[in-house]
Protein backbone atom coordinates (compact mmCIF):
# COMPACT_ATOMS: atom_id res chain seq x y z
CA UNK A 1 0.00 0.00 0.00
CA UNK A 2 1.32 3.42 -0.86
CA UNK A 3 2.12 5.61 2.09
CA UNK A 4 1.68 9.35 1.79
CA UNK A 5 3.78 10.08 4.88
CA UNK A 6 7.03 11.94 4.37
CA UNK A 7 10.31 10.13 5.06
CA UNK A 8 10.82 12.36 8.11
CA UNK A 9 7.36 11.52 9.40
CA UNK A 10 8.12 7.82 9.16
CA UNK A 11 11.56 8.14 10.75
CA UNK A 12 10.50 10.29 13.68
CA UNK A 13 10.56 8.35 16.95
CA UNK A 14 11.92 5.27 15.25
CA UNK A 15 15.28 4.49 13.74
CA UNK A 16 18.31 4.47 15.95
CA UNK A 17 16.68 6.41 18.76
CA UNK A 18 16.75 4.28 21.89
CA UNK A 19 19.55 2.15 20.51
CA UNK A 20 23.25 2.86 20.30
CA UNK A 21 23.30 4.63 23.65
CA UNK A 22 24.38 1.45 25.47
CA UNK A 23 28.02 2.52 25.76
CA UNK A 24 27.12 6.04 26.76
CA UNK A 25 24.86 4.78 29.56
CA UNK A 26 27.33 2.09 30.65
CA UNK A 27 30.04 4.73 31.05
CA UNK A 28 27.77 6.87 33.27
CA UNK A 29 26.46 3.97 35.37
CA UNK A 30 30.00 2.69 35.99
CA UNK A 31 31.20 6.20 36.85
CA UNK A 32 28.41 6.58 39.42
CA UNK A 33 29.44 3.25 40.99
CA UNK A 34 33.11 4.25 40.95
CA UNK A 35 32.60 7.43 43.02
CA UNK A 36 32.14 5.57 46.35
CA UNK A 37 34.36 2.64 45.31
CA UNK A 38 37.33 4.87 44.47
CA UNK A 39 36.98 6.88 47.69
CA UNK A 40 36.96 3.59 49.63
CA UNK A 41 39.93 2.43 47.53
CA UNK A 42 42.00 5.49 48.51
CA UNK A 43 41.13 4.82 52.16
CA UNK A 44 42.13 1.15 51.75
CA UNK A 45 45.38 2.06 49.99
CA UNK A 46 46.37 4.33 52.88
CA UNK A 47 45.87 1.45 55.28
CA UNK A 48 47.65 -1.13 53.11
CA UNK A 49 50.62 1.04 52.09
CA UNK A 50 52.66 0.42 55.21
CA UNK A 51 51.20 -2.90 56.38
CA UNK A 52 53.52 -5.35 54.60
CA UNK A 53 52.71 -8.76 53.16
CA UNK A 54 51.16 -10.26 56.32
CA UNK A 55 49.12 -7.13 56.92
CA UNK A 56 47.79 -7.20 53.35
CA UNK A 57 46.85 -10.90 53.58
CA UNK A 58 45.20 -10.26 56.95
CA UNK A 59 43.27 -7.33 55.45
CA UNK A 60 41.99 -9.60 52.66
CA UNK A 61 40.81 -12.20 55.16
CA UNK A 62 39.56 -10.12 58.09
CA UNK A 63 36.09 -9.54 56.58
CA UNK A 64 34.28 -10.33 53.32
CA UNK A 65 33.81 -6.60 52.76
CA UNK A 66 37.45 -5.86 51.85
CA UNK A 67 37.94 -8.42 49.04
CA UNK A 68 34.41 -7.90 47.71
CA UNK A 69 34.75 -4.09 47.49
CA UNK A 70 38.26 -4.43 46.02
CA UNK A 71 36.95 -6.96 43.48
CA UNK A 72 34.11 -4.60 42.56
CA UNK A 73 36.51 -1.65 42.32
CA UNK A 74 38.68 -3.67 39.91
CA UNK A 75 35.77 -5.05 37.84
CA UNK A 76 33.95 -1.73 37.45
CA UNK A 77 37.20 0.20 36.86
CA UNK A 78 38.30 -2.17 34.10
CA UNK A 79 34.89 -2.00 32.45
CA UNK A 80 34.90 1.82 32.69
CA UNK A 81 38.44 2.21 31.37
CA UNK A 82 37.73 -0.20 28.52
CA UNK A 83 34.84 2.03 27.44
CA UNK A 84 36.93 5.20 27.84
CA UNK A 85 39.91 3.90 25.88
CA UNK A 86 37.54 2.59 23.21
CA UNK A 87 36.19 6.10 22.64
CA UNK A 88 39.74 7.50 22.47
CA UNK A 89 40.75 4.91 19.83
CA UNK A 90 37.56 5.58 17.85
CA UNK A 91 38.22 9.34 18.03
CA UNK A 92 41.84 9.38 16.89
CA UNK A 93 42.51 6.22 14.87
CA UNK A 94 40.77 6.09 11.50
CA UNK A 95 42.68 3.39 9.61
CA UNK A 96 40.34 0.38 9.91
CA UNK A 97 43.01 -2.29 10.48
CA UNK A 98 44.85 -0.26 13.14
CA UNK A 99 41.58 0.71 14.80
CA UNK A 100 40.33 -2.87 15.03
CA UNK A 101 43.71 -4.07 16.30
CA UNK A 102 43.80 -1.41 19.04
CA UNK A 103 40.16 -2.03 20.03
CA UNK A 104 40.89 -5.75 20.38
CA UNK A 105 44.11 -5.04 22.31
CA UNK A 106 42.15 -2.73 24.63
CA UNK A 107 39.50 -5.39 25.23
CA UNK A 108 42.03 -8.18 25.81
CA UNK A 109 44.23 -6.10 28.16
CA UNK A 110 41.21 -5.07 30.23
CA UNK A 111 39.72 -8.58 30.33
CA UNK A 112 43.05 -10.24 31.19
CA UNK A 113 44.08 -7.63 33.78
CA UNK A 114 40.67 -7.64 35.43
CA UNK A 115 40.41 -11.44 35.50
CA UNK A 116 43.94 -11.85 36.90
CA UNK A 117 43.30 -9.30 39.63
CA UNK A 118 39.88 -10.67 40.66
CA UNK A 119 41.20 -14.25 40.72
CA UNK A 120 44.20 -13.15 42.82
CA UNK A 121 41.94 -11.34 45.29
CA UNK A 122 39.71 -14.43 45.63
CA UNK A 123 42.73 -16.70 46.09
CA UNK A 124 44.15 -14.62 48.94
CA UNK A 125 40.75 -13.94 50.53
CA UNK A 126 39.82 -17.63 50.53
CA UNK A 127 43.08 -18.54 52.23
CA UNK A 128 45.02 -19.83 49.26
CA UNK A 129 48.34 -18.37 50.42
Amino acid sequence: MTSYRTPLGRARGKGAAGHGVTHWIAERVSSAALVPLVLWGVFAALRLAGSGYDGAVGWMQESPLNPVLLGLLIAVSFQHMHGGMRVIVEDYIHKPSTKVALLLLNLFVCALGGALAVFSILKVALGGV
Binding site: Y53, I74, S77, M85, I88, A117, I121, V129
Partner: peptide, 27 residues
Protein backbone atom coordinates in the same frame (compact mmCIF):
# COMPACT_ATOMS: atom_id res chain seq x y z
CA UNK B 1 44.01 11.59 33.52
CA UNK B 2 41.75 8.78 32.27
CA UNK B 3 44.63 7.38 30.24
CA UNK B 4 46.94 7.73 33.26
CA UNK B 5 44.43 5.85 35.41
CA UNK B 6 44.34 3.06 32.80
CA UNK B 7 47.97 2.51 33.75
CA UNK B 8 47.11 2.95 37.42
CA UNK B 9 44.47 0.20 37.26
CA UNK B 10 47.03 -2.12 35.69
CA UNK B 11 49.41 -1.30 38.58
CA UNK B 12 46.58 -2.15 41.02
CA UNK B 13 46.08 -5.47 39.19
CA UNK B 14 49.83 -6.13 39.42
CA UNK B 15 49.67 -5.46 43.17
CA UNK B 16 46.81 -7.97 43.62
CA UNK B 17 48.57 -10.62 41.53
CA UNK B 18 51.83 -10.17 43.45
CA UNK B 19 49.97 -10.67 46.74
CA UNK B 20 48.56 -13.95 45.41
CA UNK B 21 51.99 -15.08 44.12
CA UNK B 22 53.74 -14.75 47.46
CA UNK B 23 55.83 -12.68 49.91
CA UNK B 24 58.90 -12.29 47.68
CA UNK B 25 56.92 -11.12 44.66
CA UNK B 26 54.87 -8.77 46.89
CA UNK B 27 58.04 -7.31 48.42
Amino acid sequence: TGVALYGGALILALWAVSLAVGPDCYA
